[in-house]
Structures are given as C-alpha cells and as structure tokens.
C-alpha cells in the first residue's frame, strides 16, 4: 500500500494557480524526490499533504486515508524555512517538540539525550538555539524530525546551510532510514542531490507534474545522442557518425550524428583502432532533463 497517494489536487491563491491537477504516489521503503524550480508549487503540495492547507479539488490519502491527529505522531516534517524557539534552551525545546509527537516525558528526555550525543550536540544542550551555528540548528531540526521514529519523513531542502561533511552525514542518515523501510519524501530544487539519493521522483513545474517515475527510467528515456568515452588514444572527429566531441571531466563526450546508433559508433571506433577504456551512453543529468522538458513545454504552449 502506498504511504502517500496524491490524486488530482489543485490549489489556487487568489488569481494564481499554485498546484494544477497534480497526481503521484509514494511507496514505503523509498526515497522519493519532489523536484522543481523555486516557486513551482512543491511546498504547497507538501502542505496539502500535511493538511496544513486544504486543496481546492482532488484528494490526498496519507498512510491509508485522510490525515488524523493520530497520524501526526507517525510523521516527521522538516520545513524549508527552519527555526526553533530562539530563546529556549536546546534540550528543553527538543523535549517539548518530542512530547508533541506523542513521546512520554521521560522517554522524550532519554531520546533527546541519545540523539544529542549522536549528532555531536550534547555539549551545547544548555545553550539557547540562537547561540548555535546554522549547521547545529539544522542538526537540531533533524533530531526533531526523526526523534519519534516516524514511518513517513518529509524533508524540504535538506541540504541547505550544510557543509560537505554534514551533507554527507544527512545523506547517510536518509539512506539508513530508507533501509529501515521508511518512506522519505525529499523536496528540493538541487537536482544533483536527488540523482544520488532518490529511487523515484516527480518533477513539478508551474504547479503541474511534468515528469514522474523511477530515476533511472527517466534518465534512460531522455538519454539521446551522447556517448561518454575514455580513450587512451586520440579520437578523430572525422570518424563517421560523430557530430562533435567535447572534453568531459577526464574523458570525452561525443555527440552522434542523426541516424547513427551507439552500437555503430562503437564498431567504427574499434575497427579504427581507438584504444577504449570506457564507453557508455551518457545519461543526462536531471538538470538537463528538466531544461529539456521545460523548453519543450514552452514551445508547445
């Protein structure tokens, strides 16, 4: 049973359409990317899923039905615009928010202590939140999101304000949670982060779903005429089937001429004695796919 089913939801603010007939579903045990540029309607969709906003039309089913007070204890949410009570001590703030998620007082205190140690914040537990660095605050937010061991985790822009070390830590953490069978929705405009993490994704532009499916299928279906090659010898542009060659990291990226298949090029290269280390079909990045989709959309409009 999917953890979230979004069915044809729409939402308008005044004359502006924020979400337009969006549908997708999220399964347990996967990291699901909810992607789109700034202002695409991602946060609005999340707020509708969380019952903070009501959709104008369409339905959302979460953990098997509409949102209830009981279900709020089974989900963790890390909003994009983060913050905690600035004037309250870190541990007090965390314990309060944990008890609001249904943990008993003593249990909350024990778990908060445990997590503070795990996230390297234990020595700062008596500080007020405003005295912590941005990265520390972000980690505190993650504690709040995960402390009650939720089945569903929704994270909006998880990597903003994090340095590379902490980014890696969060990535590991999210994978770990997924492997425990949890459903993780990751909402971001940083698409390269998703390429590493997400199993499936939905891409939103101007409130509409423009792409939806497994990451690899999507990449494969958008992979076109490009080949990535590492060769020990030079590749001549005069080889039949090659439109152009450009340097790409340590290798080359070859654009095929129309009508040439990758197999044909491989055959040609082998026959002409190019020493190949690596030959692969270049999967487009999500950024590239996104630009491709949006420009195509713009043309049809």
């Amino acid at each position: 049973m999917p953890t979230i089913v979004v069915d044809q939801i729409s939402k308008r603010f005044g004359s502006q359409t924020a979400v337009d007939q969006a549908s997708f579903s999220v399964e347990p045990g996967e990291i699901f990317g909810l992607l789109g540029p700034n202002g695409a309607g991602k946060t609005t969709i999340i707020r509708i899923i969380l019952d903070i906003f009501k959709a104008d039309s369409g339905t959302v089913s979460i953990m098997g039905g509409p949102m209830t007070e009981d279900k709020k204890n089974r989900l963790g949410y890390l909003p994009e615009e983060r913050g905690l009570y600035q004037d309250v001590q870190l541990d007090r703030s965390l314990v309060y928010l944990a008890t609001l998620k249904g943990l008993s007082g003593p249990e909350a205190i024990r778990k908060v202590d445990e997590d503070l140690k795990r996230f390297d914040l234990y020595d700062h537990r008596k500080k007020k939140i405003k005295e912590l660095s941005k990265g520390m605050q972000q980690k505190a937010q993650l504690i709040v999101t995960l402390i009650h061991n939720p089945e569903l985790v929704i994270i909006d822009e998880p990597f903003s304000a994090l340095d590379p070390v902490n980014t890696q830590m969060v990535k590991d953490l999210l994978r770990e949670e997924r492997d425990k069978g949890k459903c993780i929705v990751m909402c971001t405009h940083q698409m390269h982060q998703v390429e590493e993490l997400a199993d499936r994704l939905v891409l939103i532009n101007e409130g509409r779903v423009v792409l939806y499916g497994g990451l690899q299928e999507i990449q494969r279906s958008y992979s076109g005429k490009d080949i990535r090659v590492h060769a020990l010898s030079d590749i001549s542009t005069s080889l039949p089937g090659i439109a152009s060659i450009e340097a790409d990291n340590s290798g080359h990226r070859i654009h095929l001429q129309a009508g040439t298949s990758p197999q044909q090029l491989l055959q040609t290269m082998v026959e002409s004695g190019v020493q190949l280390e690596k030959f692969e079909i270049a999967l487009p990045t999500l950024d590239e796919i996104f630009i491709q989709v949006v420009t195509a959309q713009g043309r049809t409009q």
Binding site: L50, I52, E69, N73, L75, Y77, L97, L100, K101
Partner: peptide, 8 residues
C-alpha cells in the same frame, strides 16, 4: 509548521 504537523 512543525507544531502544526504535531497538534491541531
């Protein structure tokens, strides 16, 4: 937002 996804 955190509070609202915890309490009515």
């Amino acid at each position: 937002e955190i509070i609202l996804t915890s309490v009515s």
